[in-house]
Design a protein around this nucleic acid. Structure first.
Length: 570
RNA sequence: CGGGGAUUGGCUCAGAGGUAGAGCACUCGGUUCGGGACCGAGAAGUCACCGGUUCGAAUCCGGUAUCCCCGACCA
């Protein structure tokens, strides 16, 4: 392709409302434009990247026997009502009415539609297993679209769904996907981890996410270098560092106006881990007192699984229920249900004395109070691995893919049944698996850039090579450029030729910004000696070669880049 | 949904009661040509919207909308 004929609107300055590196670079390098919050236009370069990624997705999905189909974006409400999600999902679902005032919605995901299809088309165990997938638009009215293309209201998704006769089959399909996903993300040049995740609203018991480490990510996960334990912070378990038990005797200490752990800790000159933080929560049924150690944060989601929906009590409620003002609550002497983090089982602590301006020192859990013990703290860097006790790391990441074992959550309400060998009717066992191509692109940029711009992994770059004839008024330059362009193109190499009548500096800057991995520079000086420069975008290293050897050199490096794949050029 | 910030030419921004500015980009002419050149000339904005205060509002006061950030939420 010729640069002069392509829409590549690069920007010299950083757009005011972009913050994430991938967002800034996608805008500056002319890959995308924002229509409004969470809605993006993909320009020619952007589309090429998405298509490169889609191609890899198709190859790897097809390789595990998945079949591509395509389903509507517009759905009738009935199928969603049948599984109950029409009522469970709130404002995140775009809802509308058709002209006959029939309730419709825009698809956020397609479990319902797959189950609907399966209910009609799958009759016998002989037709199982199946894996169906599509690469198609999803719509979600996100509360807060952010970070450019990372969280949008409309986005492309590769979603696949497995249909199996039994749990064993589901495990096999799940495993196939996990392996395909590893290949996909590796081929896309991402650094990533597969971590345990919360199945959340998808239902089902087992789920994993594929996390590409990046400061622009919205998720945090923890990772053990010792045994490989890796989990989303939403459910990660850990053993907090041990605290030496003091031999305090129970006493009340005067702590005027000191309410937070930090304040009391400073006042008494004791580290926060010697404190018990008491938090009053109001659940649907009863108030509950949650206890975590002073150096920990209460994990809302973990607690959610134990006591269900809840919220923090207001100040007045604390006083009313516990008889003390917030800041001086302690775990002793209450009638209500107490849930404490497991690490509090041992040790001697300080906590509120249930008396204004007093704290109690020398509290021994099990003696001064009893509680239900559970892991309800948020994992911190440096905590120990629950499996092997090695130190845990915590990293921020972009969730680029996820896999869920669903079971029969959708097949039963949708009546997706089959007949087994004995002629008995059984629900199909489902799994669902997603990948966001735009997030792959964003993560690739987040992980591969420098001050000059994007550095694409070869596999998903919009072009293989950018050809830079520096001075297109020089006929020799143009002649050679055209030859190389033709030669490479005939070999199946995708070339972007910067044939604009621009100064060399402008072309260099744009080439670095756009981030095509290899640059071929044709300048008058080198040309006089019959030489052309081949420059690597990442290392900035350049080699000079005779212009007749250029095509061959490029071909060689392309083949090297395909390592591990049976790439044959006929 | 809670909190914070922003909104002035295509882009990045300045201007703080007296009627609109710069740099870049764009158009034309000239000079230049291996890391976002230079000189000259031009075109381009009902200062987000609605209302109020004022002789007079981009500027002060209400309100609304949109965008961004933090948090809650997140198939």
């Amino acid at each position: 392709m010729r640069f002069s004929k392509m829409l590549i609107p690069t920007l010299k300055e950083t757009p005011a409302d972009a913050e994430a590196v991938s967002h800034i670079l996608m805008l500056r390098a002319g890959y995308v434009r924002q229509l409004t919050a969470g809605l993006y236009i993909y320009l020619p370069l952007g589309l090429r990247v998405i298509e490169k990624i889609s191609k890899i997705l198709r190859e790897e999905m097809n390789a595990i026997g998945a079949q591509e189909i395509t389903m509507p974006v517009l759905h009738p409400s009935e199928v969603w009502q049948q599984t109950g999600r029409w009522y469970e999902i709130g404002e995140e679902m775009f809802r509308l009415k058709d002209r006959g005032s029939r309730d419709m919605c825009l698809g956020m995901t397609h479990e319902e539609i797959i189950a609907w299809l399966a209910a009609r088309e799958i009759r016998s165990y002989r037709e199982l297993p199946q894996i169906w997938y599509q690469i198609q638009i999803k719509l979600r009215d996100e509360a807060r679209p952010k970070s450019g293309v990372i969280r949008t209201r409309e986005f492309l998704m590769k979603d696949s769904y497995s249909l199996d006769a039994d749990e064993k089959g589901l495990e096999r399909s799940y495993q196939l996907h996990a392996e395909a996903y590893h290949k996909i993300f590796s081929r896309c040049g991402l650094k990533f981890y597969m971590v345990e995740s919360d199945p959340g609203m998808m239902g089902g018991a087992t789920a994993h996410e594929f996390m590409a480490p990046s400061p622009a990510g919205e998720d945090e996960f923890t990772m053990c270098d010792g045994c490989g334990y890796a989990a989303n912070i939403e459910l990660a378990l850990s053993i907090p560092k041990e605290v030496e038990a003091k031999n305090w005797i129970l006493e009340e200490v005067y702590t005027p106006e000191k309410r937070t752990v930090q304040e009391v800790s400073d006042f008494l000159q004791l580290d926060p881990e010697y404190f018990i933080k008491s938090i009053l929560l109001i659940s649907d049924k009863d108030p509950v007192l949650a206890l975590v150690r002073g150096d920990q944060e209460l994990h809302e989601k973990k607690l959610n699984r134990i006591i269900g929906k809840h919220r923090q009590a207001h100040k007045e409620e604390v006083k009313e229920i516990l008889g003390v003002e917030a800041g001086f609550i302690g775990p002793m002497g209450h009638r209500l249900k107490i849930i404490a983090d497991a690490c509090l089982k041992e040790g001697v602590y300080v906590s509120g004395a249930n008396k204004p301006h007093y704290h109690a020192k020398g509290i021994r859990p099990g003696k001064e109070f009893t509680a239900e013990w559970n892991d309800i703290h948020v994992v911190k860097e440096g905590d120990s691995c629950p499996k092997c006790n090695a130190p845990l790391r915590v990293e921020r990441a972009i969730e680029v893919g996820n896999i869920f074992m669903l079971g029969t959550k959708y097949s039963i309400p949708m009546r997706a049944f089959y007949l087994d060998k004995n002629g008995q009717e059984r629900p199909i066992i489902m799994g669902s698996y997603g990948i966001g191509p735009a997030r792959i692109a964003a993560a690739a940029i987040e992980q591969n850039n420098d001050r000059d711009g994007i550095i694409w992994p070869k596999s998903i770059a919009p072009f293989d090579v950018e050809l830079l004839p520096l001075n297109i008024r020089d006929s020799k330059t143009v002649e050679i450029a055209e030859k190389i362009y033709k030669g490479l193109t005939e070999e199946g190499i995708e070339v972007l030729m910067d044939d604009r009548d621009e100064r060399a500096g402008v072309k260099f800057k744009d080439a670095d910004l756009i981030g095509i991995p290899t640059q071929i520079i044709i300048g008058e000086k080198n040309l006089k000696e019959g030489l052309i420069e081949i420059k690597d975008r990442k290392t900035k290293e350049a080699v000079k070669v005779g212009f007749r050897e250029v095509v061959e050199k490029i071909l060689q490096s392309q083949i090297q880049a395909e390592t591990g794949r049976a790439y044959l050029k006929s």
